[in-house]
Amino acid sequence: MGAIEVRGLVREFKKGPRAVDGIDITVAEGEIYGFLGPNGAGKSTTVLMLTTLLPPTAGTATVAGFDIVKQGAEVRGAIGAALQEAALDKFLTGREHIKLQGSLHGMKGAELKRRGDDLLERVGLTDAADRKVGGYSGGMKRRLDLALALLHNPRVLFLDEPTTGLDPQSRTALWDEVARLAREDGVTVFLTTQYLEEADALANRVGIIDHGHIVIEGTPAELKASVGRSSVEIEPHDAARLGDLERTLAAFGTPLTMRGTSASIRLNEGVSDVAAIVRALDAEGIGIHQLRLREPTLDDVFLEQTGRSLEGSGDDEDAAE
């Protein structure tokens, strides 16, 4: 049995859409599962159900072997979660949060102190531990939230858009910690994100959700391979030769969308075509101002599956999330 097993899970809001519409997911022990989709796709609603904060309308799910509806207390004892907005009390210090979180999980005394100190050090908050959280930066709050989620050694960790609003340095530090948790501690991580690079860098497998449905699932490499070959985009020295450029390139692949001063194609053979393209353009006397070779990305996968781009999409979608 996987660490997370979801079958036909549905959540319907009153007078609203089906935010989650019959999804199936299996996440293995120790796996990092990236759950990708635009705002309003159903990511957070799924997490709320799997963490027992929201009951499903239909379907079943087990987390760490426990049914999310019938065994809520056991699920909560086995999971940690850092949700979109860190739920912290600005009047408590970091250490007081640790103490409260520990008491909620039945931890106390030396065990709690040792574990709390370890985690505060691991997330780089030892020096700030006795300061009130009201004075923490966004990154510090996220890191404290992560420490709190890990306090009771959860078997499954839910991270809902954990790096939204973080600076690049904090984001990288958090990625490193999440990767280490899965690798060294065997923690199963369910990571929702709208950042493609985050899913690409961290996840063993990725599921893409759109309008409450999972549209595709697999390893990042599999998903990108499913889109096909690399593409190349070339900008000529002389903008007047753009038409000639397009005609020359057409022999090497399928034309893609044009961006005014450049032309791009999906390569027939892949990277090995590039040398031949350069030679052909040289023979035609078309100077190259810029040449960009692009590997397929998860955004290409999303585009292929939904006809829309994931990056920057969905900002106006439903408020269920």
Binding site: D89, F91, L92, E96, L100, S103, L104, H105, G106
Partner: peptide
Amino acid sequence: MTGFPTWWSGVSGIAARQTRAFFTNP
């Protein structure tokens, strides 16, 4: 820790937070 000890630990943790908030906030 499971069952009553966890429950009681949760009760006392929440009560302690609220009590601290009361006595430290004019």
